[in-house]
Amino acid sequence: MASALPIDLAGTACLLDGRRALYWHAAQTLVLADVHLGKGEAFRRQGVAIPSGHTQADCDAIAALLDDYRPQRLVVCGDLFHDRIRGDEGWLGALQALCHRHRQLAFDVVLGNHDRKSAALPDLGMHWHAELVLPPFVFHHEPQSDPRGYVLAGHQHPVLRLRGMGDALRLPVFWQRAEQAVLPAFGSFTGGMAVEAGAGERLYALSESSITPLAAGTGAALSKGASRCVF
């Protein structure tokens, strides 16, 4: 069983899953961000030889989460697709099958900057939103403050670099801030942006086997000076 950790967001009980997902109990809603389906195809079209497979794997990972949590609703905070959809993508079938199997599921996607490349988005039963308000939360793609509620967003692909005791790791993080939280990128073919927690913020370093909460100051206690701490 993958790692999971209960956390409280805007006074609401949630469960953080080490597979880069967030589950909101009361609304039975699973939240993901930055899946970037079809990124390999986009590269191949440009003459860069990336093998196929990661999009299928990401679809399978979504399916596994849906099987585990059996949510009523799935929200993706933007960038479900990496590039304009042309209709000949091999994985569209897999996504279609997934949507068909879970057709009772409300599937809401906030438009991300990558999704906007498609003039017409494929009709697989999901609902597209510029933003989505489900109190106490407001779902955006790009992190921002919103007076209507606590913002859940993606876009930044936050990761943490940990160093110390002669060891080093780079892990995706869930970044909990005062008025918003940034989800890690879900897609397996995505890069990341190193972040540090500010005062009063928290980072949760995620791996399949563990979730490690880091208070402000600890993560910042250096990616830079860790080697000094060893001696």
Binding site: L162, G164, D167, L169, L171, T212, L214, A226, C229
Partner: peptide, 10 residues
């Protein structure tokens, strides 16, 4: 590994 690094940082 994470636990040990975090402990040392703390």
């Amino acid at each position: 590994r994470v636990a040990r690094m975090v402990a040392s940082l703390e």
